[in-house]
Design a protein around this nucleic acid. Structure first.
Length: 461
RNA sequence: GCGGAUAUAGCUCAGUUGGUUAGAGCACCAGUUUGUGGCACUGGGGGUCGCCGGUUCGAACCCGGUUAUUCGCCCCA
């Protein structure tokens, strides 16, 4: 028989890991709710038509596709089969795929349910997504996103809420981050200077790598690809980015003659509004205007955001990309036939946040608690008494177990020890006869024989 | 899609220039201790050395292929 294995890029999550993942999810979800977002879930499987063409050519390649049921090859085009044209034949033998993110399913949902939805529509969604990417450190083929989006409101107050959500959730998790933001309008202002959208798009791709390969690295690539005025534009962005405050950066942009453009004005105006909104709100993490931030997804049209860890407890060699990102998209539902619905949203990358917190040892002790009390019976005849007492403890909210059967006490205490259970309640002939219980603190080793009615009181101290 | 590394017990890994019966630690089971865990000691189970082929008297070890995993690149959470 073959040894069992997992598909690459997927993981099992054992009990200890799950408790910690649920802890992170709990913090994020609680934060979403506190800002008035309501839950949404959509199917893992979407029609391929819904997914294709939304993430660029590269994205289409990374979609997991599901083979049609039945005799799907019977209906397939013979010519395509003969020429082994995988790409073309895929369209005929696969109608469905696994979702690639949570934003496109949201857009589909909103378009399909426009009659039931009241705008502004605020929803959160915490579910796995799948990408047929090559797995590596911090990158998985199945991973979870925690998204919050607002649809149908142009107000920058939404961006203000989302920044606060990032800030307060990471503060609660105890992970120091830098919330970087930028505005697509600022970058759009460079398009005329760079002579066209092809150059401009390539330029944005290159500058987005700045935090990875540095100013010189980006400069070299721009020179290699001979983007017109690219080197000058990049130098300007870099100079502006080196300024200390957001206000100085905005002023410098305002005064730059080469990039005057309506997008720039919109960007400066919206960023100023955002800062004004946050004036009375304490933000504990760094909030940095980074004019080199572009972000890959092509549908962003306004503010863009990205969260990167900035915590000195993370080991220096533990390099991982961003742990969250988002932005505004003016036209996402447009591809599904609903015009003029603007949206803005953010996402938390659960798996990367987990990896970081694990590496930096940030999980609090409470995040891994399980059973509080284990009843250990010397004889099966003590089990009914244990059941009764366990029921009372459970009703009082204590996680309680009755060891199944009456194995050797050593084995039962071993079990408790391995599971990190604090209290063992030992019941033998003597205790059952006396109406007592021998309750042992497995951390201190202290043991007392007390009336059965006083167990809850004893362990609550 | 491209490049590098790795593959030996459930897990983490040793294994000498190719040479008798492939080891350790952890984990598991039993015992030392008939109702008391963590520590210690004793014993036990568990491996087609990823798979296929080649070289050789002889391969875990050398060579070729293959599969899987993993780390980078592209891109992204």
């Amino acid at each position: 028989m073959d040894k069992p294995s997992l598909p690459s890029g997927t993981r099992d999550f054992g009990p200890e890991v799950m408790m910690r993942r649920k802890y992170i999810i709990g913090v994020v979800e609680e934060t979403f709710k506190r800002f008035g977002f309501l839950p949404l879930e959509t199917p893992a499987v979407e029609n391929l038509k819904t997914l294709q063409g939304k993430y660029g050519d590269e994205g289409d390649q990374l979609l997991f596709k599901i083979l049609n049921n039945g005799d799907f090859l019977a209906k397939a085009d013979e010519n395509l089969l003969l020429h082994r044209d995988s790409k073309a034949i895929t369209q005929q033998i696969s109608d469905r795929g696994l979702r690639y993110d949570l934003t496109v399913p949201l857009a589909r949902f909103v378009v399909m349910n426009r009659d039931k939805i009241h705008f502004p529509f605020k929803r959160y969604q915490i579910q796995p997504v799948w990408r047929a990417d090559r797995p590596q450190k911090g990158r998985y083929r199945e991973f979870w996103q925690c998204d919050a989006d607002i649809l149908g409101s142009q107000s920058i107050a939404n961006e203000g809420d989302l920044i606060q959500i990032y800030d307060s959730a990471f503060a609660k998790l105890g992970l120091k981050v830098n919330i970087r933001f930028n505005h697509r309008g600022i970058l759009d202002a460079f398009a005329p200077w760079l002579q066209g959208s092809v150059n401009h798009n390539r330029f944005m791709q290159l500058i987005d790598k700045a935090d990875k390969i540095g100013f010189e690295g980006v400069l070299n690539e721009i020179k290699n690809e001979a983007i017109p005025n690219g080197a000058e534009a990049w130098s300007l962005l870099h100079t502006i980015n080196s300024l200390n405050t957001t206000e100085e950066k905005l002023k410098a942009l305002q005064n730059e003659a080469a990039i005057q453009h309506e997008g720039l004005q919109k960007g400066i105006s919206e960023i100023s509004q955002l800062l004004a909104l946050l004036k009375n709100v304490p933000v504990t993490n760094a909030l940095t205007l980074d004019v080199t931030l572009a972000r890959g997804l092509s549908y962003y049209t306004g503010m863009v955001m990205e969260v990167v860890p900035e915590d000195n407890r993370i080991p220096a060699d533990f390099r991982i990309g961003s742990i969250g990102g988002g932005g505004r998209y003016d036209n996402l539902t447009g591809v599904f036939g609903l015009k003029d619905v603007t949206g803005v949203g953010i996402s938390f990358g659960l798996d990367r946040i987990y990896d970081l917190m694990e590496a930096a040892l940030l999980f609090p002790h409470e995040s891994i608690q399980s059973t509080a009390v284990l009843f250990c019976c010397m004889e099966d005849s003590a089990l009914p008494a244990a059941f009764g007492m366990a029921r009372n403890l459970r009703d009082a909210g204590m996680a309680t177990e009755v060891y199944p059967g009456s194995a050797k006490l050593k084995k039962q205490l071993d079990y408790a020890n391995n599971k990190g259970i604090k209290w063992a309640c030992i019941l033998g002939e003597q205790e059952v006869a006396d109406g007592t219980a021998s309750i042992k603190n497995l951390i201190s080793g202290e043991q007392n024989t007390i009336p059965q009615s006083q167990i809850l009181q004893h362990i609550s101290q």
